[in-house]
Write a protein that binds this DNA or RNA. Structure first.
Lengths: 179, 179
DNA sequence: TATTGTTATACTCTATAACTATA
DNA sequence: TATAGTTATAGAGTATAACAATA
């Protein structure tokens, strides 16, 4: 096995707590107002990257506010969806899909495993694991999905269905080299 | 003065180094491939938030790769642009505009001040500072702007000018409550 | 009392590198 | 030698809370 057995130290690894909502005592905090009146944004107004970043921060804020009840983040949610729909995927492959380092997925998987949402199953290769959601994991994921859909709909509510598709299509064309 | 004079300990505060480019020895790293063949993304394909997040990560990666020569980040760049176009702005106001905590701007400003790019000038209110770019700061900013424009153009190269405007418009409509 | 800038502290995310057990 | 998972470590980012100076 990959250095230590799944049933032992792995799942017992230190894992960060859910990170509960903190009350903003003095409100010196993270509300990324879309655009502040009286401020000149100059070139920022014309940059695709700036627009994307602003949107991303706003969406992220809404996500955490909406899903605060669950111990989930966009990153963790994506992991579950990927594993659910690509059962048996390895950690290295998952890291590749998620665009993060292999070391990063360890904590994510540890956390889910300890919560009973997934299992590291034997792969043919004894160095690797096949990741699978448990029944409980699948059940939880369905709940998350529902909540995420609601969040995403709320966030996109000013756009028609057509516009949302259009937006995704445009975003999908970014960062593509013409060569 | 706000607890300590600008000329003394403030600018001398610890500031993080430029964070030079690191060679990916084993390439277990951060290349967020737009979409990986053979992977089922399920619901993620339909989420506005996911599309925005992917785009943001790709753009960020291109930004750091493109601007690696300069000691700048999207965050720092935005700060300079805002200060340049809103001279005399206070740190608290800047924090508000940037959507981060006041404590966060201190390090940013310290860094710029030590680099000679900006000055904390006296405000009428002796608790506050008026932020101004120095001549050198203005000069540097122009260079950054040029590089950022090129980066943003490259990132958006698959979109027509019209589509870019369209994209920004759509992004700007996100996260708006209809009430 | 309230506000500005500051500091101290802590937590999250994620990277690199080295290590282990396999292959 | 190369690969999968793991660990140790470190750095960036950013938050909260408390504090000094000032309003």
């Amino acid at each position: 096995m990959p250095k230590q057995s799944p049933a032992t130290s792995k799942a017992q690894a230190k894992l960060k707590a859910p990170a509960a909502k903190r009350p903003a005592s003095q409100a010196q905090a993270p509300v990324f107002n879309a655009r502040i009146v009286g401020i000149n944004y100059d070139i920022l107004e014309e940059l695709t990257g700036y627009a994307v970043r602003r949107a991303q921060l706003s969406i992220y804020a809404d996500f955490t506010a909406s899903l605060g009840a669950y111990d989930i983040t966009p990153q963790r949610f994506s992991s579950l969806v990927i594993i659910s729909n690509n059962p048996g995927i390895s950690q290295t492959r998952l890291a590749e899909v998620m665009g993060i380092a292999r070391s990063g997925v360890v904590a994510i998987i540890d956390n889910f495993e300890q919560a009973g949402l997934l299992e590291r199953q034997d792969a043919g290769d004894r160095r690797a694991y096949n990741l699978h959601l448990t029944k409980e994991g699948q059940r939880q994921l369905e709940k998350y999905k529902q909540a995420v859909k609601e969040h995403d709909d709320r966030v996109s509510q000013q756009l028609t269905i057509k516009e949302r598709q259009q937006l995704r299509a445009l975003l999908g064309k970014l960062c593509i080299e013409s060569k």
